[in-house]
Amino acid sequence: HNLTITQGKLFFHYNPKLCLSEIHKMEEVSGTKGRQERNDIALKTNGDQASCENELLKFSYIRTSFDKILLRWEPYWPPDFRDLLGFMLFYKEAPYQNVTEFDGQDACGSNSWTVVDIDPPLRSNDPKSQNHPGWLMRGLKPWTQYAIFVKTLVTFSDERRTYGAKSDIIYVQTDATNPSVPLDPISVSNSSSQIILKWKPPSDPNGNITHYLVFWERQAEDSELFELDYCLKGLKLPSRTWSPPFESEDSQKHNQSEYEDSAGECCSCPKTDSQILKELEESSFRKTFEDYLHNVVFVPRKTSSGTGAEDPRPSRKRRSLGDVGNVTVAVPTVAAFPNTSSTSVPTSPEEHRPFEKVVNKESLVISGLRHFTGYRIELQACNQDTPEERCSVAAYVSARTMPEAKADDIVGPVTHEIFENNVVHLMWQEPKEPNGLIVLYEVSYRRYGDEELHLCVSRKHFALERGCRLRGLSPGNYSVRIRATSLAGNGSWTEPTYFYVTDYLDVPSNIA
């Protein structure tokens, strides 16, 4: 807008934040220059609390790290170098490059900038070799853009010569660093050979998330399962459950009422301010606690030095998902009996873990797994792929695949051998790939016309006998059925096997 004052003059007093240069501009645009008398524009009460600059400061050096910015700028000295009290560095987070010096300023003089007072450097006698002032900004957020400017702080001049310097606002972004852990990993099994893994992005990506790394490792069953005799009275049979499938998407929606109208769909109840505040506090606490764990609990591995020492970490090797089922080394339970199943799973520490690289999504279907087997899954978020990966501390989750139908069934015939004193040795093959492992066998036998009897055969007993022995049988026709019990439950009964026990007292003698 054009402003013209045809008559009258300007009068400025007691404006401590208004620089004289701005008042002189007002004289020019209003056409009143030359009308004012000496005392109409006070030299001592206008701009006496402001830094009124008329020179431009330029930054000469900028260096960044993930949490620091090192700045240096060209030296500046007023005509009387004693008038320079120091520099004021202003900075704040700036997602967009549209910041002005006066953003967030209120009537009390406060604003949204963080201000650092910096002492002037030592003055050199040689004007050509003056030290460049600077400042190291610490405690910054990774991968965050900051708006920065600097200006001088000078003393009051009796001659009211307006001098000083100020830089333009520059924008500097800190470097990326390792992201925080992925949030809320959930693993479920939808079949006997697959596990579905879902997660949420890290709360602090500290860069642009480029991919996720998912490692999985087959877990050995508890050692007590191999040692305890679950045929003993009072000892509860062990059981394991597989990871249940995901709930429906509708039930997972946030901010939804727990109660549904019987007449149909209901609208979600909005969260109160107290609920939102509580969630923010919980989120802040979780982030602080995660940072504490990362800094205190997890110790970084030592990389190899120039002395030739090897990095103890196993090298990563990509495998196809079809090879995942046989990740671990199978060892027989008892070496003397080769027909026992290889369900003991000690994992070799030198073995390469299978892994998958996930790009542009937060889910993965891990296939080719062994049925009813526990897996430990390790999830890392990465925001750099080359020249070397920059990934987060791992988040861990466990899951067990679903049982395989008929995996616990005894394959092959049940054979028998009759000894003296009416002892019958029953023999059968253990299931080759049971659900988890076989903890015991149930032997059901009966003599024709009598009630059915049951015998429990422990895992250890089966390994020693290759089956079991029935003792003290009365003469007669017998039928026997056997079924295995694994961590997933009972298998199917075998087809009945028949044998006849004679009275050993009636056996004919070869003595003449």
Score class of each variant (00 low, 15 high):
Asp204Met: 00
Pro205Phe: 14
Pro205Glu: 11
Ile209Ala: 11
Ile209Thr: 15
Val214Arg: 01
Phe215Arg: 07
Trp216Gly: 12
Glu217Thr: 14
Arg218Ser: 11
Arg218Glu: 13
Ala220Val: 12
Ala220Thr: 15
Ser223Glu: 14
Ser223Thr: 09
Leu228Asp: 13
Asp229Gly: 04
Thr241Lys: 15
Glu247Ile: 07
Glu249Arg: 04
Ser251Asn: 07
Ser251Asp: 12
Gln252Val: 13
Gln252Asp: 14
Asn255Tyr: 05
Ala263Tyr: 15
Glu265Trp: 10
Cys266Ala: 09
Ser274Arg: 11
Ile276Arg: 10
Leu277Trp: 05
Glu279Phe: 03
Glu281Pro: 04
Glu282Thr: 05
Arg286Phe: 05
Arg286Leu: 02
Arg286Ile: 04
Lys287Ala: 02
Phe289Gly: 02
Glu290Gly: 04
Glu290Trp: 02
Glu290Phe: 03
Asp291Ile: 04
His294Tyr: 06
Asn295Ser: 04
Val297Cys: 02
Val299Leu: 09
Pro300Glu: 04
Arg301Val: 03
Ser304Ala: 02
Ser305Gln: 11
Ser305Asp: 07
Ala309Ser: 09
Arg313Met: 02
Ser315Leu: 11
Arg318Leu: 13
Arg318Asn: 09
Arg319Thr: 13
Arg319His: 09
Ser320Pro: 07
Asn326Arg: 14
Val327Ile: 06
Ala330Leu: 03
Ala330Met: 06
Val334Tyr: 13
Ala335Gln: 10
Ala336His: 03
Ala336Gly: 07
Thr340Ile: 13
Thr340Asn: 11
Ser342Asp: 05
Thr343Arg: 10
Pro346Ile: 09
Glu350Ile: 05
Glu350Trp: 05
Glu351Pro: 11
His352Leu: 09
Arg353Asn: 12
Phe355Cys: 06
Phe355Glu: 10
Phe355Val: 11
Lys357Ala: 15
Asn360Phe: 08
Val365Ser: 11
Ile366Gly: 00
Ser367Asp: 08
Gly368Tyr: 04
His371Ile: 13
Tyr375Glu: 00
Arg376Asp: 06
Arg376Leu: 11
Ile377Cys: 09
Ile377Phe: 07
Ile377Glu: 00
Glu378Leu: 09
Gln380His: 15
Asp385Thr: 02
Asp385Phe: 13
Pro387Tyr: 12
Ala394Met: 08
Tyr396Trp: 15
Tyr396Gly: 05
Ser398Met: 04
Ala399Ile: 06
Pro403Asp: 03
Lys406Glu: 14
Ile418Leu: 11
Asn421Ser: 11
Asn422Tyr: 11
Val424Thr: 05
Val424Asn: 00
His425Asn: 13
Pro431Trp: 02
Pro431Ala: 12
Glu433Cys: 14
Pro434Val: 11
Pro434Trp: 00
Gly436Ala: 08
Leu437Ser: 03
Tyr441Arg: 02
Val443Asn: 00
Arg447Asn: 07
Glu451Ser: 12
Leu453Thr: 07
Leu455Thr: 12
Val457His: 00
Ser458Glu: 04
Phe462Leu: 06
Ala463His: 09
Glu465Arg: 12
Arg466Thr: 06
Cys468Gln: 04
Arg469Lys: 07
Arg469Tyr: 07
Arg471Val: 09
Arg471Met: 05
Arg471Asp: 07
Gly472Glu: 08
Leu473Pro: 02
Leu473Gly: 00
Ser474Pro: 06
Gly476His: 00
Ser479Phe: 05
Val480Phe: 09
Ile482Trp: 01
Arg483Glu: 00
Ser486Val: 01
Ala488Val: 13
Gly489Pro: 03
Gly489Phe: 04
Asn490Cys: 10
Glu495Val: 06
Glu495Cys: 13
Tyr498Gln: 06
Tyr498Leu: 09
Tyr498Ile: 12
Tyr500Glu: 03
Thr502Ala: 13
Thr502Asp: 02
Asp503Lys: 05
Tyr504Arg: 05
Asp506Gly: 10
Asp506Pro: 08
Asp506Gln: 14
Pro508Ser: 09
Asn510Ala: 15
